[in-house]
Design a protein around this nucleic acid. Structure first.
Lengths: 349, 349
DNA sequence: TTATACATAGAAAGCGCTTGCTGTACGGCT
DNA sequence: AGCCGTACAGCAAGCGCTTTCTATGTATAA
């Protein structure tokens, strides 16, 4: 029913081996023969059987990309950049590779399951994006899995994620701590002394690092933090909205709200507006990531730009072996403070 | 080096056939034997070889999702919804399936290439999202490809895309024309008579349908359209910014700008603000899609909500055969007008 | 007790491709 | 003329799994 290599071989009057070599182009075939084969391929509408090739050659052209939430541009941008570099159609590289984008939803077990699935497919490479989950058992399981993947020849690259020692994985880590520090430094420089902080989910490295940066800035300026000033939530708009209301209830005198990311910041802005406060006159708001929409907020968000596309592209190239891994297998990617309208001096300064 | 089925069989003291049956669970195996096998699997850290399974069983657990731009939430939301339904880890369905998200970048040839790649992998199903490209040659090529996929047993679902007759593909089509019509009706109802329109790229069905809806509304109200009032651009913010400036240059008396989608609308808002106009006092702005950030624009965008997540989920279920296809293989998904602050009455009404 | 059905496990034949090795023909060299 | 190197092309052995068919042991019926 389906046409196979042998059918093509028969029609072109050559052996299956020759057809295979024409299609893979890694062995000399006389021009005339090649023509005949290509013609037969075309006439029969032949399409190689991927699984069979993969089995015989013990390689695959699948590349896995793990993301927390594909609907979030933060991940979409990185995934797109990775994909553009791994050499899928339209990419710069040669062989055609298929990107497998896996949506973990931030769930530990799904992260692991997807990795197994990718291992099962004998993926050529895997890129993991986003922060890691801070759970000892899970981290051990992940490390074991990554090690096994590496052993099986799958290149593993972490993009925007802390290093995973002894796994053979290359890490491109975002300097969340530094960015958080710089952002809060800026606010303090403007005169703020009472700053609310809307953190992400508790058990994530990204959350912790950004918060640590924030606190480091406070400490450096001798500002004693009030425990009521920190609220944890999810990395989305709604969470930002609710958290801001909570923050305001706890301490209505806050002059600034620092959000875990831009989506949260947008929610914060909405909450502030809905409660009759003006930004930045009454309360300043800061985000993180600098996603495309952040500049369209009114006022535009002051935030820390993370070079998501660049980092993703680099991760893709490293995964494909087209760029050397950084020394030590670890590189830190810094963010850049984007000063815009959503942060100003507090009243009376 | 790598552990195979045979290794597991040897350790569990059973035949490879039995191990396979335990792992696939589609043949009676005595409980005691199953235990032994599972134990061996665990001890050896065995992971099935996907390509080999696929080859032997002539089936695969890959599902392809074609999107124009993975970094755009419009597609991200649909892709995420499809994925949540196809039964990957964490999904509702049983067998574990891998979603392959393919970024076509809107390029015709990449669309085709990805389809071939998916065909090569013997994908279980393919979901194509986003508008189709209006080029006769390309459409014929696509139709042929889709037909061949269907023949090979791959289920094909179009999500937010016009039907592809005679291909066996199920289509969940967005009512872009109706939505566009309703939106412009609304603006006219507010008193607008001079409306600029920022359309998407020329050769896309989505662009054409939305524009047709807009024009139908104008015609229905006896408003003669000025050719200068329509500008084509891309589906992004920057394009919206530039197009708005162009529109304003052509006719500074416009009282409303209708954008091809929300991103374009955001760009339009920025351009209007930068040129010193207030929204909606001086000029009203309308978008399309109702992406999450649209409500955070200031003023919030009046737009047409497309149920992206619902449509994607349904497409996913149909692709998995878990929901019946609509009668005739075609269903129209309607948008909903969201009236918000970015549209108001024009001056002097 | 013997015949018969049933439950379970194994043997073996592929699935469609890749690739190391083995021809074979031809041209150039001595 | 004889030899050898080169350039192709083919043979055939798998790659690791699934699945049909067959074998064996056990329970039930006659």
């Amino acid at each position: 029913m389906t046409v196979t290599l042998a059918d093509v071989a028969a029609r072109a009057q050559v052996s299956p081996a020759t057809v295979s070599r024409v299609l893979n182009g890694n062995y000399p075939v006389a021009a005339a023969t090649r023509e005949r084969v290509l013609k037969a391929v075309d006439e029969l509408d032949y399409v190689l059987n991927g699984p069979a090739s993969a089995l015989a050659a013990a390689t695959s052209d699948l590349v896995g990309i793990l993301v927390n939430d594909i609907a979030d541009p933060f991940f979409g941008i990185m995934a797109g950049a990775v994909q553009s570099e791994i050499g899928g159609p339209g990419g710069r590289a040669g062989g055609e590779r298929l990107a497998v984008v896996c949506n973990t939803g931030g769930a530990p077990e799904r992260e692991l399951t997807y990795l197994t699935l990718l291992q099962r497919q004998r993926a050529a490479a895997v890129v993991l994006t986003g922060g890691a989950i801070e759970d000892a058992a899970h981290q051990a399981a992940m490390a074991a899995k990554l090690r096994r993947l590496a052993e099986a020849g799958t290149r593993v690259v972490l993009c925007g994620r802390p290093p995973a020692p002894e796994t053979g994985a290359v890490a491109l880590t975002f300097d969340n701590r530094g960015g958080g520090r710089e952002l809060t430094d800026h606010l303090i420089g403007l005169g703020h002394r009472r700053l609310g902080y809307i953190a992400g989910p508790q058990e994530r490295t990204t959350t912790r690092h950004r918060l640590e940066g924030h606190r480091a800035a406070l400490a450096a300026h001798g500002i004693e933090e009030d425990a009521r000033w920190t609220v944890h939530g999810r990395y989305d708009r709604q969470s930002g909205y609710e958290a801001t209301l909570e923050l305001l209830r706890r301490d209505p005198s806050l002059t600034a709200v620092v959000a875990a990311n831009d989506s949260v910041a947008l929610g914060a802005c909405a909450a502030l507006r809905d409660s009759g406060r003006r930004i930045p006159d009454d309360v300043s708001v800061a985000g993180f990531d600098d996603l495309p929409f952040s500049i369209d907020a009114v006022p535009a968000l002051t935030t820390v730009r993370l070079p998501l596309a660049e980092a993703g592209a680099r991760a893709g190239r490293i995964a494909m072996g087209r760029e050397e891994a950084p020394i030590g297998g670890i590189a830190t990617v810094r963010g850049e403070l984007m000063v815009r309208g959503s942060c100003g001096q507090p009243r009376g300064v």
